[in-house]
């Protein structure tokens, strides 16, 4: 090898070394991200492929992680759907006053990020005489009910023909036997196709790690519902399945000061929700899209 050739090789080696170290330096912030990941989590299988025995250690690991990340002892359970139960929800537009207490209850119950006031419920202030959401407003802050307005709370409609379930490329979201559309937060890849597909703005993405003070965390949690979600995955209303699957009412229903909300078992002909569907003027949102919601709106008179 002559001198210029040697110099060329040396320059190339130097260039390659510089390039490699520059790349390592550029990617350094990834270390912070990788610190929150674990091999167990990486290899974890889809919820529906796990037996109860396989799920148990996962729940314990998630509890330990909640303790480490948020400094709170929590209990993460996995309540099963109830035999023969088909959940439905109805909302009385005649009495809803738009106070957003339901949204607040959801915020607290479901361990939502505090900085963004996140909630699965969005209440639209609508103009009387119009169904046009274009003329609605979700950010009102004046006293309610305001004259000439009515209020339309919107949350996941738990569609029987759910576009979000259809589009998910990895089956990270599906419909449970009791009609609740759930997300496996440990399986979601965060592509947000479901957010694009949902016609009801029901889905939320974790743009960053949720911030919740330890004392504000609701420790009664479940795998498919209100455990604190990881960064980078999609979440949605799950009809408070950690409550409803043990017979209780959803948090938003209990918080409603006017009793506009009716929750119950659609499969039970004697249930209150069935009475509403049979005796009140009921409609569903965006019926023309063929999503077959399990969430109904009705008028009292």
């Amino acid at each position: 090898m002559d001198e210029p050739q040697k110099r060329r090789v040396a320059l190339k080696v130097l260039g390659a070394t510089l390039g490699a170290s520059a790349f390592a330096y550029a990617m350094a912030p990834v270390r912070k991200w990788a610190a929150g990941l674990s091999v167990d989590q990486f290899l974890q299988r889809h919820y529906r492929e796990l037996t109860k025995e396989e799920l148990a250690p996962i729940l314990r690991r998630l509890e330990a992680k909640a303790k480490a990340d948020y400094g709170r002892d929590v209990v993460i359970r996995d309540p099963d759907p109830l035999e023969g139960a088909e959940f439905g929800y109805a909302l009385n537009l005649s009495v809803c006053i738009g106070c957003r207490k339901c949204a607040e209850a959801c915020h607290v119950e479901n361990n939502h990020d505090r900085t963004t006031n996140n909630s699965y419920i969005r209440v639209l202030e609508m103009e009387q005489g119009s169904f046009d959401m274009e003329r609605g407003d979700a950010t009102y802050e004046h006293a309610v009910p305001a004259p000439g307005k009515y209020y339309l709370p919107v949350q996941c409609q738990q569609c029987d023909n759910a576009p979000c379930v259809t589009v998910c490329p990895v089956q990270a979201t599906w419909k449970e036997p009791d009609g609740i559309v759930v997300v496996d937060y440990d399986w979601c890849i965060g592509c947000r196709y479901c957010e694009a597909a949902c016609p009801y703005h029901a889905r939320r993405f974790n743009w960053q790690k949720p911030e919740i003070p330890a004392e504000e965390i609701n420790p009664d949690q479940s795998y498919l519902s209100n455990r604190v979600r990881p960064q980078g995955v999609v979440e949605k209303c799950h009809f408070c399945l950690h409550r409803t699957r043990v017979g209780r009412n959803p948090a938003c229903l209990e918080a409603c000061p006017t009793g506009a909300r009716v929750f119950g078992n659609l499969a039970d002909p004697s249930s209150d929700i069935r009475w509403v569907l049979e005796n009140r003027r009921v409609y569903v949102l965006k019926e023309e899209l063929g999503t077959h919601p399990r969430f109904f709106y009705f008028f009292e008179k």
């Binding site: 209780r248 249930s271 005796n279």
Partner: peptide
């Protein structure tokens, strides 16, 4: 209409269980 709705938990609100085989319900 309000009273009939109230009787079916469609007006007035309360706390407790939707499933009365698992717990009680209290209405306002």
């Amino acid at each position: 209409p309000q009273f009939r709705g109230y009787l079916r938990s469609a007006h007035g609100g309360g706390r407790g269980h939707w499933d009365l085989s698992r717990g009680p319900r209290e209405k306002n």
